[in-house]
């Protein structure tokens, strides 16, 4: 599998490690009244889609960047690769 890195171009998947669903970026607010439930959901509840899914990958044997990879679990096609930093900033995080 080849992951088309947004800065470095196509790189072999062997250079990357997989973390999990991209929703891990959205860490809940620990001060919220519903924090316990929010963290339970954040930590344990995952969809298991047959189709498009967004995942976090780490370019360990490369530039050490975190990526959000949009991948289809039925066809293995990778449709989009973004820097996780850009995704987080776009979602309103400060860094």
């Amino acid at each position: 599998m080849i992951i088309n890195h947004p800065l470095l171009g196509p790189r072999d998947a062997a250079e990357f490690v997989y973390l999990g669903d991209a929703s891990l970026i959205d860490r809940p607010d620990w001060q919220s009244d519903t924090a316990a439930d929010d963290f339970y959901e954040y930590q344990y509840l995952r969809d298991n889609p047959a189709g498009e899914t967004r995942e976090l990958w780490f370019h360990e044997q490369g530039d050490r960047s975190w990526l959000v990879v949009t991948r289809n679990t039925l066809t293995h096609e990778i449709t989009k690769v973004e820097l996780a930093r850009d995704v987080a900033l776009a979602a309103g995080r400060d860094r």
Partner: peptide, 10 residues
């Protein structure tokens, strides 16, 4: 310049 892996070594 690039960082990669050869024979599993960074």
């Amino acid at each position: 310049v690039a960082r990669t892996a050869m024979e599993h070594l960074g």
